[in-house]
Simulated scan of single mutants.
Amino acid sequence: MSQFLRRITSLPIQSIRSFHSFDEVTPAKYISTRLKNGVGSRYVCQLQRLTIQVCKEFRTSFGTRDWIANDLIKFAREHPYVVVYVQPRRHRAPNLVGEYLAGDRQWIPLSNCDREKVNWWIHSLLTQKGDPQWRLLKQMHTDSPSVQGIWTPFTNKPIDRITRTYPDKDLTEMEYPQITATQQIQELFEQQKLNKTS
Rank of each mutant, 00 (worst) to 15 (best):
W121P: 00
S146I: 10
Q87Y: 03
I16R: 09
S2W: 11
E187D: 13
C113F: 13
P132T: 06
W151N: 03
R89H: 12
S15I: 00
S15P: 00
F19K: 04
T182S: 14
W67C: 00
T64K: 02
R135T: 04
V84C: 09
L137R: 13
E24N: 12
Q3T: 11
G130E: 05
M140A: 12
K56E: 03
Q148K: 12
S32E: 15
V118H: 11
T165C: 04
Q139V: 09
L171E: 15
K138C: 10
K157S: 11
I13G: 00
V25T: 11
D23K: 12
P158S: 01
N156H: 09
F154V: 10
Y43A: 05
S18R: 04
L171H: 14
T152H: 01
Q183C: 11
E175D: 09
N95S: 13
V83S: 09
D170K: 13
L126W: 03
L96M: 06
L47V: 03
R6G: 03
G38E: 11
V44G: 00
D143P: 01
D168G: 04
Y43D: 07
L137W: 02
N112L: 05
L35H: 07
S21H: 08
E173K: 14
R105K: 12
L11G: 00
Q139D: 05
V97G: 02
P88A: 06
V84Q: 10
E187A: 14
H91D: 14
K117D: 01
L125R: 08
P109L: 01
I13L: 11
M174T: 15
L125Y: 11
Y30S: 06
D66A: 14
S21F: 07
R77S: 04
P94I: 04
G103F: 09
T51H: 05
I108N: 06
L5F: 11
T9C: 00
N112V: 02
D23C: 05
P153V: 02
T180D: 14
P12S: 07
T127H: 10
G38D: 07
F189I: 13
N95K: 14
T26S: 06
T165S: 09
C113R: 15
T197H: 08
Y85G: 03
E190N: 02
R17P: 00
W121Y: 14
R161N: 09
P153G: 02
I68C: 02
Y85D: 15
L101Y: 05
P167Y: 03
E187I: 15
G63Y: 03
M140G: 08
Q14L: 04
W151D: 02
L171C: 14
L137G: 02
P80V: 13
T64C: 08
L188V: 10
L11P: 01
S198V: 15
I68A: 02
W107C: 10
L72G: 02
V147N: 05
S41N: 15
G63P: 01
F62Y: 05
N156E: 12
S146G: 04
V118E: 10
Y85M: 08
N112F: 09
D160M: 05
L126N: 00
W151H: 05
Q191P: 07
A69Q: 13
R105W: 06
L5P: 04
S32I: 08
N70L: 06
R164A: 14
V44Q: 02
R42E: 05
K129M: 10
C45Y: 02
W67A: 00
I31C: 06
V86D: 11
Y166E: 12
L35Y: 06
I122C: 13
M174I: 14
S198R: 15
F62R: 03
R92E: 15
L96Q: 04
N156S: 08
